[in-house]
């Protein structure tokens, strides 16, 4: 059983991602912003973090950076789910240490496949 942390300030998106990942092999936990995400990730050590970018209190890029510079979480793969489409965002995601980026809106099948590839071997997208 793998644990995936879903971080998004929009409850609807968290419900959606939860539904997409629903299955016997994945357990999901949730956070609504970057600060909560770091706190939960540190305590529960998920196998993958799906991180929204634009969030109140602390955005996803900052949260990603903090996780990657924290020894206890540095090796946990982080996938950014972003609705920001421009090139600089992709570059910033890379600089923040993200392992991959999924563009919103996404197809459930694509997200599921990407998540599976991370959970089963850590392929970078």
């Amino acid at each position: 059983m793998k644990t995936v942390l879903i971080v998004d300030d929009e409850p609807t998106i968290r419900t959606l991602v939860n539904a997409i990942l629903d299955g016997p092999d994945v357990r999901t936990i949730e956070a609504a912003d970057g600060i909560e995400a770091i706190d939960i990730a540190r305590r529960q050590q998920p196998d993958l973090v799906l991180l929204d970018v634009v969030m109140p209190r602390m955005d996803g890029l900052t949260a990603c950076q903090r996780m990657k510079s924290d020894r206890s979480m540095a090796r946990t793969p982080v996938l950014l789910l972003t609705a920001l489409a421009q090139e600089p965002e992709q570059e910033r995601a890379r600089l923040a240490g993200a392992d991959g980026v999924v563009q919103k809106p996404f197809s459930p099948a694509t997200l599921r496949a990407t998540v599976d590839s991370f959970l089963n071997g850590g392929t970078k997208t």
Partner: peptide, 17 residues
């Protein structure tokens, strides 16, 4: 465009599911 994409994500996601 970011704000438009967010509800769109839910529309596309749930309808495909």
């Amino acid at each position: 465009s970011h704000e438009l994409r967010t509800p769109l994500t839910a529309l596309q996601g749930f309808s495909e599911l």
